[in-house]
Design a protein around this nucleic acid. Structure first.
Length: 617
RNA sequence: GGGGCGGUAGCUCAAUGGAUAGAGCAUCGGUCUUCGAAACCGAGGGUUGCGGGUUCGACCCCCGCCCGCCCCGCCA
């Protein structure tokens, strides 16, 4: 039917911008009007294509292959000549040379050369570096540059998704942190993002919980910590039911009543849900998360019947061992491993709800993309879900959004096993974040005892929570990672504290000079960058769009983390090598310009990751 | 048994099919009368699990094997 499959939907790859002004620049002298594209890779790609046309490389598709280069070779490189030469049985260096001869328009901006077997190296001239940096001096300018990439997308991001009546624990950390970062990245790139908390608010556990709630509730404990009390009640209900068949029966009847919408049980269930969601807010606020929707499993209760009918109606669902299941005969595994959409007792399960959710998000929310930030152990489930949804939508003639499982690995303890308390319980998120703050507080107090206590507490909260977030984000999300307080709160290495310190130090410079970073006057009269440290920092600044693009296209925040860490490192080197507060006005202005842009990119980047920043720490 | 993901420096991790595989920690050696030393500079450290293959070029793609973690019918 030609309907979109997950693998060939329009990708999130950035569309090259076409409104760059490279070709109009014909004067190497410094010009405030020099307007360089936000995405220089895309601009160069286009320039190379033009050059290929003029050089007569019109055969079958010349691909420029522009990418950022190792700094020893330049700022960018184009590798397309190699593949083209191979394909056309020509000498790659000759092809590269021919291309370079057609790149005269770039001469005011780049030093262009051919190296090795046929690489084209492009190094920004100091004036061009300066012009790019001058042109991208505000958050708005960055956002405007980035916003083209995803502008036609409406993305539903399904993340966090804890269960009501239970504490959030460390197992919920990554979904929340990665999900939020992904949302912010997509928004910055112009997508309409709908944050949906698909909470687990329906299930058989409510029978035992309601049974215990009616008999064993401690109102004072409920006020003190509602989730803790719900957990206690559930455990009581569970042990009582295990010990006494009569209790089990009563609990099952409570569940039946709830499912039959008995007013009392329904009200109680609703109350539990509301109290739970309210309790989650504390965690979400600390992590900078605000959902647009909280549509839990129960929301879909009355939307499940049509799913059964449709799946049976279009010959997808079949009966197996008393359950309704979907097999995928063409799939080596799922031809025998069923996707159970209705249990043999007639009840729905998460597969059914997930299918109903896809329908809702498509028809009601008009999603073009749905991303699930869920633990990688559920990858089979999502593969079956997407396969089933695709066939179902095909057969019912509906457009299918791009569905994608953003999987992530497990948080491990130092012993290499999933992180738990010493006694083997789940570590509560609330306590984990509190410990992060406390450890940071000890550190701040040791480093800066003269700061007022209130300020040290605020700093500790931001550094502590940020450290946890950053430790999670800075690692490839697909792999497991070892949780280590010492590493994540550390001042050294790729950590939140290192980045936040760089930010604080830049603010400190401006304070010392009695200037404000946002004030353009501090940069007025800046001369082009000269020293090795200035140039290295400037070159790093120009790579921001590339890092942002990599993180957004792959939905992997660690690409941005790596960049921010390198940027902060480049700044520290510059800071140690070149004094900013010199008397010579043009030199001072250009160094302030570098400080200002580094600050802008660090703060923008950290905010996109979900972290808050500080002006002193 | 079937499948997924991983194996890169002593440790924790990076690396768009590109050039000499990079960081941090740890180790060793330097730098504070100068904008915040929570910093910076330098050194040593590698058969990218093993064996084949594809390619001008492979940590990356393909095949086989070894090891680890995870998933595989009515939990989510």
């Amino acid at each position: 039917m030609g309907r979109k499959r997950p693998s060939d939907c329009p990708s999130l790859l950035r569309q090259p911008s076409i409104n760059y002004a490279l070709a109009t620049v014909s004067d190497a002298s410094l010009s405030d009007q020099m307007d360089l594209s936000f995405d220089l890779v895309a601009a160069l790609d286009h320039a190379l294509l033009g050059a290929a046309g003029r050089a007569g490389l019109t055969g079958t598709g010349f691909v420029p292959g522009v990418r950022t280069a190792d700094a020893v070779h330049g700022d960018f490189q184009a590798n397309g000549a190699l593949a083209y030469a191979k394909q056309q049985r020509q000498n790659p260096r000759t092809v590269a040379q021919a291309l370079v001869e057609q790149l005269g328009d770039l001469a005011p901006l780049f030093d262009v050369s051919v190296a090795g077997p046929g690489f084209i190296n492009l190094r920004l001239k100091p004036t061009a570096l300066f012009a790019w940096i001058a042109a991208h001096g505000t958050r708005a300018a960055l956002a405007a540059g980035a916003a083209a990439a995803e502008k036609d997308h409406t993305v539903v991001v399904d993340y966090s998704s804890p269960n009501t009546a239970k504490q959030m624990h460390v197992g919920h950390l990554r979904s929340a942190v990665i999900g939020e970062a992904v949302c912010r990245l997509l928004e910055f790139s112009g997508a309409t993002v709908i944050r949906d908390n698909h909470i687990g608010d329906w299930g058989t556990q409510f029978g035992k919980l309601i049974w215990a709630h009616k008999r064993l509730l401690d109102p004072a404990a409920l006020t003190r910590d509602a989730l803790e009390e719900f957990e206690r009640l559930y455990k009581l209900g569970n042990t009582a039911a295990e010990a006494d068949p009569a209790v089990l029966k009563e609990a099952q009847q409570e569940l039946v009543k709830l499912q039959a919408h008995d007013p009392e049980n329904l009200a109680l269930w609703r109350h539990i849900g509301e109290v739970s969601v309210a309790a989650f807010q504390d965690i979400y606020e600390q992590l900078g998360i605000r959902f647009d929707l909280t549509l839990g499993e129960s929301f879909y209760n009355d939307k499940l019947e049509p799913i059964y009918r449709e799946l049976a109606g279009c010959s997808l669902a079949t009966e197996s061992e008393g359950a309704q299941v979907v097999f995928h005969p063409e799939h080596p595994r799922f031809k025998t491993q069923p996707f159970i959409i209705r249990k043999s007792d007639g009840a729905a399960n998460y597969a059914t709800t997930d299918l109903a959710t896809i329908l809702y998000r498509t028809e009601r929310l008009h999603a073009t993309d749905v991303f699930y930030v869920v633990d990688k152990r559920q990858s089979d489930h999502f593969e079956q879900l997407f396969l089933t949804a695709r066939k179902w939508f095909e057969r019912t003639n509906r457009p299918l959004p791009r569905l994608r499982h953003l999987d992530f690995g497990t948080v491990l303890g130092e012993n290499g096993k999933p992180l738990k308390t010493k006694s083997g319980d789940n570590i509560r998120l609330k306590e984990l974040l509190a410990e992060a703050s406390e450890r940071s507080y000890q550190l701040v107090t040791a480093k800066n005892p003269e700061l007022p206590e209130v300020e040290r507490r605020t700093i500790a909260q931001i550094v502590g929570v940020g450290s946890v977030q950053y430790a999670d984000l800075s690692q490839n999300r697909s792999s497991d990672y070892v949780f280590s307080w010492d590493k994540m709160i550390s001042l050294d290495g790729n950590t939140a504290a290192y980045l936040l310190y760089a930010v604080a130090r830049i603010y400190s410079i401006f304070r010392k000079l009695d200037l404000r970073p946002a004030d353009p006057a501090s940069e007025a009269g800046a001369s082009p960058f000269e020293t090795p440290a200035e140039l290295a920092l400037a070159r790093k600044l120009v790579r921001f769009p590339d890092a942002l693009g990599a993180a957004t296209n792959h939905l992997r925040p660690h690409f941005l983390c790596t960049y921010l860490y390198e940027l902060a490192g480049e700044f520290s080197t510059f800071y140690n090598a070149d004094k900013v507060a010199v008397t010579e006005a043009p030199v001072r202005a250009r160094r302030l310009l570098l400080c200002n842009r580094t600050l802008l990119l660090l703060e923008t980047g950290l905010q996109l990751l979900g972290l808050r920043t500080l002006t002193r720490m």
